[in-house]
Write a protein that binds this DNA or RNA. Structure first.
Lengths: 207, 207
DNA sequence: ATAGAAAACGGACCGTAGTCCGTTTAGTAT
DNA sequence: ATACTAAACGGACTACGGTCCGTTTTCTAT
């Protein structure tokens, strides 16, 4: 699919993605130290409690280095998410139907939403932290890709303005919304997926 | 409607709503000074540029006083919005159809979304500032009321889980989404309202 | 091996939201 | 009028994200 390759998985990778061009050895070492420390802190205290100072300290690295590496707190969270996010993306782009290609747009959208809801429930803290503080969350590349995916399916299904409709659906699946529905407002995940199915089914049935 | 009176317009009014029980005269005076200064700062520099320090300074008041009065930056923004918000609420609760009672749920929902979109475009900065930093935006009372309103209409229209569906629609109308669509991504307001109409129409047509 | 340049480093520094607590002041009871 | 109390005040203080810039380290070319 021609859409895929134009959307990078990282925010803009402030410098030296994993091992691309020449990355200085000290930089590589520090990146490893930082990611390692970050994962430990997240595991132990949760993503919300992670401060950039604490991270720098734990990784035995200057604060400037943290920001050079990840650009911002949101960037760090995105990096922490990127493996899981890539896997989810592979699922809806290349995986088996109904999530992947081969099923009807309707079935694929239902499956996409369900997958997304469970994905968010597993990575909610990180996702919220990645989205917050980012001036327009839509800049998060993974969000852009999801949006494009839904846009294509909605167009196939005959929606008049698929770009805008995809945006509505993107916000309906907002991490903050999903996490708070389940954890704060006590809605069960299955109610969310059922309602999503109802939404997509009705939306694509008409005409 | 019995729903109305249980939902206060203010967050929790840290102390002394406009003129309720005994409000000390100095408190009243300072509240007036603060609101006045805040409106001037917002008019001149925009809501985004308003800092609590600058506000305290301009109102000739200590910083502690600002926070005692409004609780937080978000609380201040909500207070600034409350007149406009009340008017919008009157529109969909008591005003003429199709926004107010008397039209079909479908027409009322379409009108509600359109009204909301234009409302957000007029008060976007304030709304974004009121929503941000508020741990779950759903706590904003006006949001709660809108949600209830949509929930009732969706139930009338035969939606299986109107509470959850209303939440999806609430997020589809998120101020950040609407403002960024129009001002950052260059989508015209009429595209947004057209798409909203398509969403509601299809959603409520089936079965 | 050496020197020079580019990249990375570190931590002091800044702006801002929000808290704390000792001081002041408005109402009230005598 | 006076004294008392609870509310309100103010501004120093903290926490945190993010920036800046002088210093150090790595790589490369000779």
């Amino acid at each position: 699919m021609f859409l895929v390759s134009f959307i990078p998985l990282q925010p803009d990778a402030p410098m030296g993605t994993p091992g691309l061009p020449h990355e200085r050895s000290d930089a590589a070492r520090n990146r490893e130290r930082l990611l390692c420390a970050a994962r430990e802190l997240v595991d132990e205290f949760g993503a919300d409690a992670l401060t950039m100072d604490a991270l720098a300290c734990k990784a035995k690295v200057g604060k400037g280095t943290v920001f050079r590496r990840f650009g911002s707190r949101a960037g760090l969270m995105m990096t922490l998410l990127s493996d899981a996010e890539s896997e989810f993306q592979r699922g809806f782009m290349f995986g088996p139907p109904p999530l992947g290609p081969g099923a009807s747009p309707e079935d694929r959208l239902v499956a996409f939403g369900e997958g997304r809801i469970y994905f968010v429930l597993e990575n909610g803290e990180l996702l919220k932290a990645a989205g917050a503080a980012t001036r327009n969350r839509f800049d998060v590349p993974a969000t852009k890709l999801s949006h494009r995916h839904m846009e294509v399916l909605l167009r196939e299904a005959g929606i008049a303005d698929p770009w805008v409709m995809a945006m509505s659906l993107t916000y309906a699946l907002d991490p903050e919304r999903i996490v708070d529905d389940v954890r704060v407002r006590g809605i069960s995940p299955s109610r969310l997926t059922d309602s999503w199915r109802e939404l997509i089914t009705r939306l694509l049935k008409a005409t």
